[in-house]
Amino acid sequence: MSASLTTPRLELTRWTGDDLRLLTTLVSDPLVVRHIRDQEPWSAEFTRERHDAALEHWSAHGFGWRAIRWRHDGTAVGMVSVSHRPVGESVLGRPAVELGWLLAPPAWGKGVATEAVRAARDHAFGHTDVVYAQYQTGNDVSGRIMTKLGMTHHADRTDSDGVHTHLHVLTRTDWAALR
Protein backbone atom coordinates (compact mmCIF):
# COMPACT_ATOMS: atom_id res chain seq x y z
CA MET A 1 0.00 0.00 0.00
CA SER A 2 1.55 3.25 -1.13
CA ALA A 3 1.73 5.97 1.47
CA SER A 4 1.48 8.69 -1.19
CA LEU A 5 -0.27 9.29 -4.47
CA THR A 6 1.29 11.74 -6.89
CA THR A 7 -0.05 13.81 -9.74
CA PRO A 8 1.83 16.26 -11.96
CA ARG A 9 1.54 19.02 -9.34
CA LEU A 10 0.42 17.34 -6.13
CA GLU A 11 1.34 14.74 -3.58
CA LEU A 12 -1.50 13.15 -1.62
CA THR A 13 0.04 11.87 1.59
CA ARG A 14 -1.41 9.40 4.05
CA TRP A 15 -3.27 11.13 6.88
CA THR A 16 -1.18 11.22 10.08
CA GLY A 17 -1.41 12.60 13.58
CA ASP A 18 0.40 15.73 12.37
CA ASP A 19 -2.47 16.52 10.00
CA LEU A 20 -4.74 17.63 12.86
CA ARG A 21 -3.30 21.14 12.40
CA LEU A 22 -4.22 21.11 8.71
CA LEU A 23 -7.75 19.91 9.44
CA THR A 24 -8.19 22.51 12.18
CA THR A 25 -7.08 25.28 9.83
CA LEU A 26 -9.44 24.14 7.09
CA VAL A 27 -12.56 23.58 9.18
CA SER A 28 -12.20 26.75 11.23
CA ASP A 29 -12.41 28.87 8.06
CA PRO A 30 -16.03 29.95 7.40
CA LEU A 31 -15.33 30.11 3.65
CA VAL A 32 -14.14 26.51 3.56
CA VAL A 33 -17.09 25.10 5.52
CA ARG A 34 -19.85 27.20 3.95
CA HIS A 35 -21.09 24.11 2.05
CA ILE A 36 -20.16 21.43 4.61
CA ARG A 37 -22.48 19.95 7.25
CA ASP A 38 -24.33 22.82 8.95
CA GLN A 39 -22.12 25.48 7.31
CA GLU A 40 -20.50 26.36 10.66
CA PRO A 41 -16.82 26.04 11.60
CA TRP A 42 -16.20 22.80 13.43
CA SER A 43 -15.67 22.70 17.17
CA ALA A 44 -12.28 21.56 18.44
CA GLU A 45 -13.93 18.43 19.84
CA PHE A 46 -15.66 17.50 16.57
CA THR A 47 -12.48 18.21 14.60
CA ARG A 48 -10.50 15.90 16.88
CA GLU A 49 -13.21 13.19 16.57
CA ARG A 50 -13.12 13.33 12.75
CA HIS A 51 -9.31 13.34 12.75
CA ASP A 52 -9.15 10.33 15.09
CA ALA A 53 -11.76 8.51 12.99
CA ALA A 54 -9.65 9.15 9.87
CA LEU A 55 -6.62 7.60 11.56
CA GLU A 56 -8.69 4.60 12.68
CA HIS A 57 -10.07 4.22 9.13
CA TRP A 58 -6.52 3.82 7.81
CA SER A 59 -5.85 1.11 10.40
CA ALA A 60 -9.06 -0.73 9.59
CA HIS A 61 -9.08 -0.43 5.78
CA GLY A 62 -5.56 0.38 4.59
CA PHE A 63 -6.70 3.56 2.85
CA GLY A 64 -8.41 6.80 3.79
CA TRP A 65 -7.95 10.53 4.11
CA ARG A 66 -4.97 12.20 2.48
CA ALA A 67 -3.38 15.60 2.87
CA ILE A 68 -3.04 17.46 -0.43
CA ARG A 69 0.41 19.03 -0.81
CA TRP A 70 2.18 20.91 -3.58
CA ARG A 71 4.92 18.65 -4.91
CA HIS A 72 7.35 21.51 -5.47
CA ASP A 73 7.52 22.60 -1.82
CA GLY A 74 5.36 20.24 0.30
CA THR A 75 2.95 22.95 1.41
CA ALA A 76 -0.40 21.47 2.47
CA VAL A 77 -3.36 23.07 0.68
CA GLY A 78 -6.20 20.74 1.59
CA MET A 79 -7.39 17.21 2.15
CA VAL A 80 -9.29 14.54 0.28
CA SER A 81 -11.31 11.95 2.13
CA VAL A 82 -11.64 8.41 0.81
CA SER A 83 -13.98 6.61 3.19
CA HIS A 84 -15.29 3.04 3.09
CA ARG A 85 -19.02 3.02 3.71
CA PRO A 86 -20.53 -0.36 4.60
CA VAL A 87 -24.16 -1.08 3.76
CA GLY A 88 -25.47 0.57 6.93
CA GLU A 89 -23.54 3.80 6.31
CA SER A 90 -23.68 4.02 2.52
CA VAL A 91 -26.37 6.24 1.04
CA LEU A 92 -26.46 3.80 -1.88
CA GLY A 93 -27.64 0.87 0.24
CA ARG A 94 -24.55 -1.16 -0.69
CA PRO A 95 -20.88 -0.98 0.21
CA ALA A 96 -19.13 1.94 -1.50
CA VAL A 97 -16.37 4.48 -1.07
CA GLU A 98 -17.35 8.08 -0.41
CA LEU A 99 -15.09 10.86 -1.67
CA GLY A 100 -14.91 14.35 -0.19
CA TRP A 101 -12.47 17.24 -0.15
CA LEU A 102 -11.61 20.53 1.50
CA LEU A 103 -9.23 23.13 0.08
CA ALA A 104 -7.72 26.26 1.55
CA PRO A 105 -8.97 29.34 -0.36
CA PRO A 106 -5.54 30.17 -1.89
CA ALA A 107 -5.76 26.84 -3.78
CA TRP A 108 -9.22 27.53 -5.23
CA GLY A 109 -9.67 27.99 -8.96
CA LYS A 110 -6.42 26.23 -9.88
CA GLY A 111 -7.74 22.74 -10.66
CA VAL A 112 -6.31 21.36 -7.42
CA ALA A 113 -9.53 19.68 -6.29
CA THR A 114 -10.11 18.03 -9.66
CA GLU A 115 -6.51 16.78 -9.83
CA ALA A 116 -6.48 15.50 -6.24
CA VAL A 117 -9.90 13.88 -6.30
CA ARG A 118 -9.17 12.22 -9.65
CA ALA A 119 -6.12 10.52 -8.10
CA ALA A 120 -8.17 9.55 -5.03
CA ARG A 121 -11.00 8.25 -7.21
CA ASP A 122 -8.64 6.10 -9.23
CA HIS A 123 -7.03 4.72 -6.08
CA ALA A 124 -10.46 4.05 -4.54
CA PHE A 125 -11.32 1.61 -7.31
CA GLY A 126 -8.66 -0.66 -5.85
CA HIS A 127 -11.03 -1.06 -2.89
CA THR A 128 -14.57 -0.84 -4.27
CA ASP A 129 -16.83 -1.21 -7.30
CA VAL A 130 -18.60 2.11 -6.77
CA VAL A 131 -17.67 5.57 -5.51
CA TYR A 132 -19.92 8.45 -4.65
CA ALA A 133 -19.75 12.05 -3.54
CA GLN A 134 -22.32 14.55 -2.40
CA TYR A 135 -22.60 18.31 -2.53
CA GLN A 136 -24.99 20.77 -0.96
CA THR A 137 -27.30 22.92 -3.05
CA GLY A 138 -25.36 26.06 -3.91
CA ASN A 139 -21.98 24.34 -4.10
CA ASP A 140 -22.00 24.13 -7.88
CA VAL A 141 -18.19 24.07 -8.06
CA SER A 142 -18.12 20.67 -6.34
CA GLY A 143 -20.89 19.46 -8.63
CA ARG A 144 -18.83 20.44 -11.67
CA ILE A 145 -15.79 18.62 -10.27
CA MET A 146 -17.88 15.47 -9.85
CA THR A 147 -19.07 15.74 -13.45
CA LYS A 148 -15.49 16.28 -14.71
CA LEU A 149 -14.52 13.08 -12.90
CA GLY A 150 -17.18 11.08 -14.72
CA MET A 151 -19.65 10.89 -11.86
CA THR A 152 -23.32 11.16 -12.73
CA HIS A 153 -26.24 12.50 -10.75
CA HIS A 154 -27.92 9.66 -8.89
CA ALA A 155 -30.38 11.33 -6.52
CA ASP A 156 -31.21 14.38 -4.47
CA ARG A 157 -31.58 13.81 -0.76
CA THR A 158 -31.70 15.49 2.60
CA ASP A 159 -28.59 14.68 4.63
CA SER A 160 -28.35 13.96 8.35
CA ASP A 161 -28.03 17.70 9.07
CA GLY A 162 -31.28 18.43 7.22
CA VAL A 163 -29.43 19.96 4.26
CA HIS A 164 -30.43 19.28 0.65
CA THR A 165 -27.64 17.43 -1.18
CA HIS A 166 -27.01 16.08 -4.65
CA LEU A 167 -25.56 12.58 -4.84
CA HIS A 168 -23.24 11.64 -7.72
CA VAL A 169 -22.03 8.10 -8.43
CA LEU A 170 -19.43 6.36 -10.56
CA THR A 171 -19.31 2.59 -11.01
CA ARG A 172 -16.20 0.58 -11.83
CA THR A 173 -17.61 -0.18 -15.31
CA ASP A 174 -18.18 3.50 -16.08
CA TRP A 175 -14.79 4.41 -14.60
CA ALA A 176 -13.06 1.84 -16.83
CA ALA A 177 -14.74 3.39 -19.87
CA LEU A 178 -13.20 6.77 -18.96
CA ARG A 179 -9.67 5.44 -19.01
Rank of each mutant, 00 (worst) to 15 (best):
G62T: 07
T128L: 01
E45Q: 10
S142I: 00
T16Y: 02
P41I: 03
L31P: 15
D38Y: 10
L5T: 14
E40S: 08
T7F: 13
G74L: 06
F63R: 09
T165H: 03
G150L: 01
R14D: 04
K110R: 15
G93A: 04
P106M: 04
L92E: 13
A119S: 14
H127K: 09
P30Y: 02
H153Q: 12
S142N: 00
G138Y: 05
R121C: 12
A113I: 01
D122H: 02
A60F: 04
V163S: 13
A44K: 12
T152I: 03
Q134Y: 01
A60G: 13
P8Q: 03
A116W: 11
H168E: 05
H123G: 08
S2F: 00
H154C: 07
G100W: 00
R172T: 05
R85I: 01
P41L: 01
H57M: 04
P106E: 07
E89M: 06
M1E: 03
M146P: 13
G17C: 01
H84M: 10
W65P: 02
V80P: 07
A107Q: 04
T47N: 06
G62W: 09
K148D: 15
V117R: 10
P41D: 13
A60H: 13
L170M: 11
E115W: 07
S4W: 09
M1P: 05
D156E: 15
T152C: 00
R94G: 02
W42S: 05
G88N: 09
W108T: 12
V97C: 04
D129L: 02
T152Q: 08
E49Q: 06
A113F: 05
Y135S: 08
